[in-house]
Design a protein around this nucleic acid. Structure first.
Length: 937
DNA sequence: GTACTCACG
DNA sequence: GACGTACGTGAGTACG
C-alpha cells in the first residue's frame, strides 16, 4: 500500500482493554506451567487477536489497524469529577501483571499498540477516528462499548467482535432513541452507574431520548426546562443543571488527544513469524503456538516441558515438592551487579518470592537485617544488609559485618521491582514484610500470600505457619529459627547471626514460599475458593497494613492515673480479704483461694476440676456472694480491678510506640477459623465496655488534635444473617420493619403482646436469640439465664416450635458438615469441621461450631468486604480507618467532616454484601462520634 | 508449657 | 442413663 492515509483507506481500531477484561473474566485462572505466572488473560487476548486477524483477511480487509489501551487510572475526567469511575472495583491482582504482556502480545502480532497517559482508550479512538474521517477514509471500531457509539456515522461503524454484529447509525438509534450526534445528550441526562456518571436523578435512557427528540439538543432542553409539563421532571432538570452539564463533559470523548503517531504509522503489517513465535513460546501457549505456526506456514517451536511428559496438571505442581532443597546452592548477594541479575530474572518471570529478616517481631519497631528472594524452586538468594559483628560492647560498638551492600543502594535497586505492577511478590504472611518495607519507603505491590492461600483452602484443618505448611506439603523440615537465635535469655537477634548461616536459613524461607505458591495457586481453583482468596483475603492485606501502621492514639496519663487508683483500691480489698480469711494468701492464686473458701471456711459448692483444684471462676464466686458471703464478693471486685490493671492500664502503656505516640495492633488474618480477624500485641478487640469501670479505659483511646473518633457498627448482624440463611419469614419481616427483635421473639414465644413487654421477658428472649446463634443447648441456656435446666429446655422447645426453620437449618447444617467435612459462608468461605463425626462430648462441640461458623463467618466476610472497599471511599475524605472489632469499625476524622464520612462509610457497610449476595434482610449500621472511643461507641 | 480466669464480639 | 456443652478469640498470672 504505502503512501498517506486518505480516500479508500480503512482504519480498524481495536478496544484492547475491553478484549483483556473479557478474556480475563471468561477464562479460568490459567497459570504458566513453568513458574505459575497467571497468564489466562494474555492467552485469551492472543486468541481474540488471532481470530480478529483471521476474520479480517477478506476483501474488506483494513489498510490500517491499531489496538488501543487505557493507561493509568487518572484522566482529565477525574479532574472534572473526582468520583468518576469511583465505584469501579480495583483491578484483580492476578490481572495486573498480565497488562504489560498484552502490550507485548500486540507488538508480537506486529500491530500498532497505542496508549497515552491521562487519556482513556476511547479518547484516542475518537481522535484517530476524526483524523481518518477528515482524511476521507473509513473507520471500524472493534468494540461494543456504548460510550463509543457517539462516533458512529460518516463512514464510521462499530463491530461487536463477540457477537459478530455490526453497529451502525440504525443500531445506535435503536439503543439511544437518538442519532449518534445526540448520544452524549442522552447519556448526560441518563447518567451511567458503571462509570459513576451522575446524570439527572430519575431519568433513564427512554425519558432522556424523548426529551432530546422534543427539544432538539441538551442545551435547548436545559434553557427551556420550564416548558416541561411534568412537574417532577421539570424540577429535576432545573435543580441538577450543573450536574447534567458536568455529566455531558464526562461522556463526551476528546477527539483532540495529543498523539505522537500519525495514521500512516498504523499501516497493516505482516507479522514477523520469529518474533511472534518467540513470544508465544515464552508464554508457553502450546495449542495457540501450534495453530498460529500452521497459519504462518512455519515449524512450531518446541515448548520445553518442565514436567515429565504426559504429566497431569496436578502432578505438574508437584515439582515444588520433588526438586530437592540444596542450601549450598543459595546465593549470597554482596554487590549491585549480582542483585541486578536477580531483579532481571524476577522481572522476566513476572513473579518472585520475598522474605525479610528483621531484628524483632514488631514490624513497627524492628530493623531490616536482610532480604531473600526466590524466582524458581531451588533458586533463591539472600541479601544481607544489616548484619553486625562484635558483642556490642560497653560503647555499643556495633560494626557492620563485611561484604554487605549498603542498605540504601540495595533498596534503591529493589524498589522498582518490588513496586512493579507487572511482578507479583509472593510472601508467607506478606503483611509483615510489606509493613517493614513500607517503613523504608518501599510499597510492595501486587502481592500473593501462601499463608492466605492455605487459609482459604484449609481453615479448620491445620495451621498455616510456614514450618507446618512446608512439612505437610513439601515434606521438608525448614531450618528452625531457634538453631540460629537460641532461646530464652541467651537469645540473640537476627542481625547477630553470621551471614553464611543466615543465607541458608533466609533463602530457604523464600524458596519454600515460592514452592508453596506454585503448589497452592492451582489448588485454589480446584477447591473452589479462588473467589474467597481473591476478594476476601488477598485484597485485605494492604488495607490492614495501612490501618496497623496508622495506629490509634492512646493517652498515657489517663492510663497511668487509673493504674494508680486501681492499685490503691486493690490493696484495700486485699487487706479486707486477708482479714476475712484470717490469714494472708495470694488472692491471685485460684488454688490458694479455693483452699481458703472450701477447705478452711467450708463454704458450699466446692467442686474440683480435672486437675484436682477447686473451681473459683466468677460464676462460682457470684453464687457464693449471692448467699451473703463477703469474701468471694471482695475477690470478685479485686479480680476485676486486677484484670483491668494488668491487662489494660499497665500493659497498654507498654504498647505505645515511642515514635508515633500511638498503639499499633496486628491483625492476624488467619487467627480465627470462621474468617474473623484476631488482634494481637496488643489485642484491641477486647477493650472493656460492659462495666462502668472498664469503660473508662476506652476513654484513653483518643482522637488527635482537631479530629474526632467515629465508630460505626452493624446492628445485630448475626441474627440478621440467621434470619436469612434459615429463611425465617417472621424474623425477616421484623428486621425489615425495624422492630425490636428480642421483644418480638419474646412476644412470639411467651404470647405477650408487644405493648405489655417487660424487660425481664425480653432479656430471656435475647439470651435465647444469642443461644441459637451458638448452637443452643438446654444446659448452656440454663447456665446463662441461671434457671433450671428443664425450664431452659422448655424455652428451647417452644422456640423451635414457633420457628421451625431454625431447627431445620441446624439439622441441615450438621448433615452438610458430616457429608462434606466443611461448612460454608454465603460468600463461599469454607470452614472445615474434621471433628464432626467424633463420638462422645466432642460431637456436641463440633456440631455447635458447625452451626455457628456459617453465621459468624458470613458476618466476618461482610465486614471484610466493607473494609476492602473503604480506601476507595475514603479517598479525598479527611478520614482514616483505625480499628476493626468484628462488627465495628473505628475511624479518625477531621472535625467537621463527621457527617460526610459517616454517610459514606455507612453506605459501604450496609451495602457490603452486594452484589455477591442479596440478603433478604437489611443491614443496619449505627454510628457515633466523640473525642474518645468511650464517647464514640 | 498448661490451666485458669476474664476481657471482647 | 450419664456425660458435659453455649460460638469465636488473646493475654496475664500462677504453677509445675
Amino acid at each position: 500500500m504505502g503512501g498517506t492515509f486518505g480516500k479508500g483507506c480503512h482504519l480498524h481500531l481495536i478496544d484492547g482493554s475491553a478484549f483483556i477484561f473479557r478474556a480475563f473474566h471468561a477464562l479460568p485462572p490459567l497459570t504458566r506451567k513453568s513458574d505459575g505466572l497467571p497468564i489466562g488473560a494474555v492467552s485469551g487476548f492472543c486468541n481474540m487477536i488471532h481470530k480478529y486477524v483471521q476474520d479480517n483477511a477478506g476483501p474488506d480487509a483494513p489498510t490500517h489497524v491499531a489496538v488501543v489501551f487505557d493507561k493509568g487510572s487518572h484522566t482529565f475526567r477525574n479532574d472534572l469529577y473526582d468520583l468518576y469511575k469511583a465505584n469501579r472495583d480495583a483491578m484483580p491482582e492476578d490481572l495486573r501483571p498480565q497488562i504489560p504482556l498484552t502490550r507485548e502480545a500486540t507488538r508480537a502480532f506486529n500491530i500498532a499498540c497505542l496508549e497515552q497517559e491521562g487519556f482513556e482508550a476511547d479518547d484516542i479512538i475518537a481522535t484517530l477516528t476524526r483524523q481518518a474521517v477528515e482524511a476521507g477514509g473509513r473507520v471500524t471500531i472493534i468494540s461494543s462499548d456504548k460510550d463509543l457509539m457517539q462516533l458512529v456515522g460518516n463512514g464510521v461503524e462499530m463491530l461487536d467482535a463477540m457477537k459478530g454484529k455490526r453497529i451502525g447509525v440504525e443500531e445506535v438509534e435503536e439503543k439511544f432513541g437518538v442519532g449518534p450526534d445526540r448520544v452524549v445528550d442522552v447519556q448526560a441526562l441518563a447518567g451511567d452507574s458503571v462509570d459513576n456518571i451522575p446524570g439527572a436523578p430519575g431519568i433513564g435512557i427512554k425519558t432522556a431520548a424523548l426529551l432530546i427528540q422534543e427539544f432538539g439538543d441538551l442545551e435547548t432542553l436545559l434553557d427551556r426546562a420550564d416548558e416541561i409539563p411534568q412537574p417532577k421532571r421539570r424540577q429535576t432538570l432545573v435543580e441538577h443543571r450543573t450536574q447534567i452539564e458536568l455529566s455531558k463533559r464526562l461522556v463526551t470523548l476528546d477527539s483532540a488527544t495529543p498523539l505522537d503517531i500519525t495514521l500512516d504509522d498504523l499501516e497493516v503489517r505482516e507479522p514477523d513469524p520469529a518474533a511472534l513465535m518467540d513470544f508465544l513460546t515464552r508464554m508457553e501457549f502450546r495449542t495457540l503456538t501450534k495453530r498460529i505456526a500452521e497459519g504462518l506456514g512455519v515449524e512450531p517451536p518446541v515448548i520445553a516441558d518442565t514436567n515429565p511428559a504426559g504429566a497431569a496438571p496436578s502432578e505438574a505442581a508437584d515439582q515444588s515438592a520433588t526438586i530437592p532443597f540444596r542450601p549450598e546452592d543459595y546465593e549470597c548477594i554482596r554487590d549491585a551487579a549480582a542483585l541486578q541479575r536477580w531483579i532481571d530474572a524476577a522481572t522476566a518471570r513476572g513473579l518472585m518470592a520475598v522474605d525479610t529478616e528483621t531484628t524483632g517481631l514488631d514490624e513497627m519497631r524492628c530493623d531490616l537485617v536482610g532480604i531473600s528472594l526466590a524466582v524458581e524452586p531451588g533458586r533463591a538468594c539472600y541479601i544481607p544488609l544489616g548484619h553486625k559483628i562484635g558483642e556490642g560492647d560497653l560503647f555499643g560498638a556495633d560494626v557492620l559485618a563485611e561484604g554487605q551492600m549498603p542498605l540504601d543502594e540495595a533498596l534503591a535497586l529493589l524498589k522498582p521491582v518490588l513496586q512493579d505492577p507487572a511482578v507479583i511478590k509472593i510472601g508467607q504472611n506478606m503483611k509483615y514484610d510489606a509493613k517493614v518495607l513500607a517503613r523504608y519507603g518501599v510499597h510492595v505491590a501486587p502481592i500473593d500470600d501462601t499463608m492466605l492461600m492455605s487459609y482459604a483452602m484449609n481453615a479448620g484443618l491445620h495451621g498455616h505457619g510456614m514450618d507446618a505448611l512446608s512439612e505437610r506439603y513439601l515434606e521438608h523440615q525448614p531450618i528452625p529459627i531457634k538453631s540460629l537465635l537460641g532461646s530464652g535469655k541467651a537469645q540473640i537477634t537476627f542481625d547477630r547471626v553470621p551471614i553464611d548461616e543466615a543465607v541458608k536459613y533466609a533463602a530457604e524461607d523464600a524458596d519454600i514460599t515460592l514452592r508453596l505458591a506454585q503448589l497452592f495457586k492451582p489448588q485454589l481453583h480446584r477447591a473452589r475458593v479462588t473467589t474467597v482468596y481473591e476478594t476476601l483475603e488477598r485484597p485485605l492485606v494492604p488495607v490492614l497494613a495501612e490501618m496497623e501502621m496508622t495506629g490509634i492514639r492512646v493517652d498515657r496519663d489517663t492510663l497511668s492515673r487509673m493504674s494508680n487508683a486501681f492499685a490503691q483500691k486493690m490493696a484495700a480489698l486485699e487487706a479486707e480479704i486477708h482479714d476475712l480469711a484470717g490469714e494472708t494468701f495470694n488472692v491471685g492464686s485460684p488454688k490458694q483461694l479455693g483452699e481458703i473458701l472450701f477447705d478452711k471456711m467450708s463454704l458450699p459448692g466446692g467442686k474440683k476440676g480435672k486437675t484436682g483444684a477447686y473451681a473459683t471462676g466468677a460464676d462460682v464466686l457470684e453464687d457464693l456472694a449471692a448467699e451473703g458471703h463477703d469474701l468471694p464478693a471482695r475477690v470478685l471486685d479485686w479480680r476485676q480491678l486486677s484484670k483491668l490493671k494488668s491487662t489494660y492500664t499497665d500493659a497498654l502503656q507498654d504498647h505505645i510506640n515511642p515514635e508515633t505516640g500511638r498503639v499499633h495492633t496486628s491483625y492476624v488474618i488467619t487467627g480465627a477459623v470462621t474468617g474473623r480477624l484476631a488482634s494481637t500485641d496488643p489485642n484491641l478487640q477486647n477493650i472493656p465496655v460492659r462495666t462502668e469501670e472498664g469503660r473508662r479505659i476506652r476513654a484513653a483511646f483518643v482522637a488527635d488534635e482537631g479530629k474526632v473518633l467515629v465508630s460505626l457498627d452493624y446492628s445485630q448482624i448475626e441474627l440478621r444473617i440467621l434470619a436469612h440463611v434459615a429463611g425465617i419469614d417472621a424474623l425477616k419481616q421484623a428486621f425489615r420493619e425495624g422492630q425490636d427483635i428480642h421483644a418480638m421473639t419474646a412476644s412470639e414465644m411467651f404470647d405477650v403482646p408487644m405493648d405489655q413487654m417487660t424487660p425481664e421477658i425480653r432479656r430471656q428472649a435475647k439470651a435465647i436469640n444469642f443461644g441459637v446463634i451458638y448452637g443452643i443447648s438446654g444446659f448452656g441456656l440454663a447456665r446463662n439465664l441461671r434457671i433450671p435446666r428443664g425450664e431452659a429446655q422448655g424455652f428451647i422447645d417452644r422456640y423451635f416450635e414457633r420457628f421451625p426453620g431454625i431447627k431445620d437449618y441446624m439439622t441441615e447444617t450438621v448433615a452438610f458438615a458430616k457429608a462434606n467435612g466443611f461448612v460454608q459462608t454465603l460468600f463461599g468461605r469454607k470452614i472445615h469441621t474434621p471433628e464432626i463425626g467424633a463420638k462422645g462430648p466432642q460431637a456436641g462441640f463440633a456440631q455447635r461450631a458447625a452451626i455457628n461458623a456459617p453465621i459468624q463467618g458470613t458476618a466476618a466476610d461482610i465486614i471484610r468486604r466493607a473494609m476492602i472497599r473503604m480506601p476507595g471511599v475514603l479517598k479525598g475524605l479527611p478520614a482514616k480507618m483505625l480499628l476493626q472489632v468484628h462488627d465495628e469499625l473505628v475511624f479518625e476524622v477531621d472535625k467537621g467532616a463527621e457527617t460526610g464520612v459517616i454517610d459514606a462509610v455507612r453506605e459501604v457497610m450496609e451495602g457490603a454484601a452486594m452484589p455477591a449476595v442479596k440478603l433478604d434482610v437489611p443491614l443496619v449500621v449505627d454510628a457515633g462520634t466523640g473525642q474518645n472511643w468511650a464517647e464514640a461507641h
